[in-house]
Design a protein around this nucleic acid. Structure first.
Lengths: 113, 113
DNA sequence: CTGAATCCCCTGCGATACTG
DNA sequence: CAGTATCGCAGGGGATTCAG
């Protein structure tokens, strides 16, 4: 009965390719903005929301969690009375700042047309 | 009547932001691979397909068209008997090679973990 | 050979409301 | 403050087929 087995379905380029590997890190919506914002120093959750107004808390959380588990950002919970959580770039996270900078630089060039 | 006008529906960060601007260029699936492939020199349609096997012709065309209209690649039709089209990076296109390189470099770092 | 046209599924993301 | 839960839609991208 025409049982199509499930065509490969590889929505993304082969994992293992460094290019793809990194794109999966910065590819999500708002991700570059988050990193860009963190680049200047540690930021709390709500501060990030202020830095990037249109992002919803859900997505911000998703990005932060994703980045955390990829070792790009640190999540430090401060046991204060009003809970506060501080996010910062790890060493690895710092590594991709230049990449983002390169992207921003090209962005300028593109805008100029 | 609580008519919330807003609802902006801005699936993407504000256009005008250079970061976003560039991400919209290299953000599509396979786009970085295409640029990466073109980096070494001009390539024809089918050559690109060989370079990036899993990409479908439809998507490849979409990417190429998108990149063309953003002034990143040149499309040169050769009026040969079997039609052949050559794609190459424009000056602007060359500009974003470093960005991709930076991304690839980070990709390596990430893989090493 | 280089695409254009179709179909269709899947995920990502937005919005909103609720909790510790 | 810092998230979590739920819902829903739109669009991106895969497969396949047709055309100049």
């Amino acid at each position: 009965m025409a049982l199509k087995i499930r065509k490969n379905r590889s929505p993304e380029p082969p994992p293992g390719c460094p290019l793809t590997e990194c794109m999966s890190v910065i590819g999500g919506a708002w991700t570059p903005n988050v990193i860009w914002s963190l680049r200047a120093g540690p930021r709390r959750f709500s501060e990030l929301r202020l830095d990037i107004p249109p992002v919803s808390p859900k997505v911000l959380t998703m990005r932060l969690r994703g980045l955390e588990e990829k070792g790009v950002v640190n999540r430090k919970v401060r046991p204060t009375s009003p809970p506060s959580v501080e996010y910062s770039l790890t060493a690895l996270g710092e590594e991709l700042v230049p990449a983002i900078e390169a992207i921003v630089a090209v962005g300028h060039k593109i805008k100029q047309r």
